[in-house]
């Protein structure tokens, strides 16, 4: 854990100070914003994935594979559509974002708690349902976007790709606030999550308020996915790599250790990867695509190994 913390600090320093030009003040503040965004997104995705895997008791799922991020994009579009451009556009970005997150929590709870409760037996069907729901939400969002503004090719485009170079810095303060709150809550209930991972019958027998904790965990996932999606766009497989590595590195299923571990690993991968691509290779926006590619291969490998639990 200490080694990982040092590695993360090193990566951050390298990202900030490598190749500062003469206009270093300007560059530094620009980079600091991006760095904060990446750290937030990394932590959010890491915690969201670990929580989701615990709730679904399945190690190959991420909230994004199950369509969480698509749901957020749909919510966002639907909100603009239903409130009209007049009222909604006049709100400031943070307020707008807070409203979106609140609606996202309600929608994802309604959908995913029933889905996880009902389809728990047939894992393959559960995953397939999630994937198709993702397609449905994304198409519906595209449909709505076209209705709002028929020439808005860009809206759909934006929702289809992620880029870590394009952190939405307007939202940083509120995103930081929400992420920190959600992560603190997750760490606070960490011992209870260990019991949750034993499955409902055992958890109930041990006196855990299982269903309430599951709803709490899903709400946290909804908040964290909203933050990550709003900041950089949809990233489906990144969390899978992070959670997989964290489980290996932590060596135990204890969430008090697993969650910080996952956050550190995510931070190192994002900041280190971005430093490498941006500074060493001169490629601005490709890290997300590369991570998705590698993560997709990893997921495929897991599936082919028959490890769907």
């Amino acid at each position: 854990m200490i080694a990982l913390s040092l590695a993360l600090t090193g990566a951050c320093a390298a990202y900030l100070f490598w190749g500062l030009g003469p206009k270093w003040q300007f560059v530094l503040s620009l980079r600091a914003g991006k760095l904060a965004g990446m750290l937030l997104v990394g932590a959010a995705v890491a915690v969201a994935t670990v929580l989701f895997q615990t709730v679904s008791r399945n190690r190959i799922l991420t909230p994004q594979i199950m369509g969480f991020d698509a749901l957020y994009i749909l919510m966002q579009t639907a909100l603009v559509a239903s409130l009209g451009l007049s009222g909604f556009a006049s709100l400031t970005a943070p307020v707008k974002f807070a409203v979106e997150v609140a609606i996202m929590i309600a929608a994802s709870l309604a959908l995913f708690s029933t889905l996880l409760g009902r389809a728990g037996q047939d894992v393959a069907r559960l995953i397939l349902t999630g994937v198709i729901l993702g397609v449905l939400f994304r198409s519906a969002a595209g449909f709505l976007a076209r209705l709002l503004d028929p020439n808005a090719f860009a809206v759909v485009q934006y929702a289809s790709f992620a880029s870590f170079a394009r952190v939405n810095t307007d939202l940083l303060p509120i995103a930081a606030l929400l992420t920190c709150a959600a992560i603190c809550a997750a760490l606070w209930v960490a011992p209870r999550l260990d019991v949750l991972a034993l499955g409902r019958p055992i958890a109930v027998s041990l006196g855990l308020a299982h269903d309430r904790l599951m709803l709490l965990a899903l709400s946290l996932v909804a908040v964290l996915v909203s933050v990550a999606t709003a900041l950089v766009g949809p990233i489906a497989f990144f969390g899978l790599i992070v959670a997989g590595l964290a489980h290996e590195a932590a060596g135990s299923g204890r969430h008090a250790r697993l969650l910080p571990m996952a956050m550190l690993i995510a931070g190192i991968m994002l900041v280190g990867g971005q430093t490498l691509f941006e500074r060493a290779l001169g490629l601005q926006s490709t890290l997300a695509v590369v991570i998705e590619f590698v993560g997709g291969l990893f997921f495929l490998w897991l599936l082919l190994r028959g490890r769907i639990r």
Binding site: R57, L198, G199
Partner: peptide, 11 residues
């Protein structure tokens, strides 16, 4: 109480 089958989420 212990149910019939107990698939675990953690190793």
């Amino acid at each position: 109480i212990l149910s019939q089958s107990n698939p675990l989420g953690s190793r």
